[in-house]
Design a protein around this nucleic acid. Structure first.
Lengths: 220, 220
DNA sequence: ATATATTTTTAGCCGTGTCTAAATATTTTA
DNA sequence: TAAAATATTTAGACACGGCTAAAAATATAT
């Protein structure tokens, strides 16, 4: 019954693509997991046989209920570990992802519970991503991308992509952390920069970076 | 350059058998790692090619300097993690081994350092085993087995085998932890029980259990 | 609507780490 | 010391999760 690390990684990636409301194709998985398309095809076959995904040839895959359950379990591990490493051991937020990427696969249920307890049953990780509870439930906020905000608006950072440490350090220098309020000053046309104010300081950042920040409405 | 988990496990086991001053044979590894003797032979070939061990056919294997370095690194991970789990997350001492067995292979150098720092550069784990420092040096005490002690003597528990959770819980109930002073009352012949006093309480334990406890002289 | 480009799958290979069965070497015992 | 028992190695197989190259299906463009 225990699943391989590889299978866990595939299921997690499928979940992550699904949650961006995109079709989970062979090529999207190939790119995300850095494996050849042919390797994805053969893994999809295996996942399908194990009833973790449904698949029709040349169409994408979809998680079944049991596949979803596994994916959420791994994501819970990942996000709990990220937060734990930051809180308990002071690991900088740009490094927690890489460490969690390995630890998530070897975390026992017992230790998961202890970490959850230690952290006081947290609901989001250092990048603002929601942490599923043991039943897979989590608080999903209705966020949108930073580049979709109207100039003049005040918003709160909901989530920041955790994959690029350099980008995270860049965000960190400006104080662009989850739950931080930012005011959008301007969004220049022709892929121009976004100018915003964070804690009284004004910054201009490029579209490429801004894409990795999602925001929610500021509280009244 | 990165070694597989399997290779790390073999090197660790080889080290552990060597440190009992026993010849590291195909069958001893087979038994310790729970794999078929033939599997050990083929892995020995690989370790030998990688210059991690020396091997002459039908004789045992010995760690080379580089093999030893790897083994001590993994053992450092294992023992630091055991202690960390107990201290930071309250994992009971009979469970830390199993958890460490998995985590030891995915621990980064950075996290190793942070854990070491958190624990104040500890020199022994919850079972009394010495923790090697980053250079592989550790404090090896001149211990002997509990069953070799003369009746009447007062000794201090140095180390307790970490492999059997049930045994550890049994020891725990009697307070048989490392650094605890015990007085040996009697050792009955014909594989008879050992009677000893721990913190004022008298217990009799069998030889089979006593074998897993090693002791040093009590301080003057 | 057909040709071209792209995506996906199939076919076949490889390294890792395991296994069983059989052969060979070593050790023990009679 | 020769026979029997035990330990080790060899030979050959298998599951896993990758790969490349080529075939097939789908999507795009002319």
């Amino acid at each position: 019954m225990a699943l391989s690390q590889s299978i866990e990684d595939y299921l997690k990636s499928i979940y992550e693509i699904e949650s961006k409301h995109e079709n989970v194709t062979t090529s999207s998985l190939s790119e995300k997991l850095n494996v050849a398309p042919a390797s994805v095809t053969s893994m999809i076959k295996k996942l399908s046989e194990k009833k973790l995904v449904t698949h029709k040839k040349y169409q994408g895959v979809k998680l079944t209920n049991s596949g979803l359950k596994v994916a959420l379990e791994i994501i819970r591990h990942h996000r709990l570990v990220e937060l734990y490493l930051k809180e308990a051991l002071g690991v900088p937020w740009d490094q927690v992802h890489e460490e969690a990427e390995k630890w998530e696969h070897v975390l026992s249920e017992d230790l998961e519970d202890r970490i959850d307890e230690y952290l006081g049953h947290p609901t989001s990780d250092p990048h603002g991503s929601p942490i599923p509870d043991r039943n897979g439930n989590m608080i999903e906020r209705d966020s949108r991308n930073l580049i979709e905000v109207s100039p003049g608006a005040k918003v709160i950072i909901a989530e920041v992509s955790d994959h690029n440490p350099e980008l995270l350090r860049y965000f960190g220098k400006m104080g662009l952390y989850p739950e931080t309020e930012v005011k959008i000053i301007s969004i220049e046309p022709f892929q121009g920069p976004i100018t915003l104010v964070v804690k009284g300081e004004e910054y201009s950042i490029g579209r490429e970076a801004a894409k990795y920040i999602s925001v929610v409405e500021a509280d009244a």
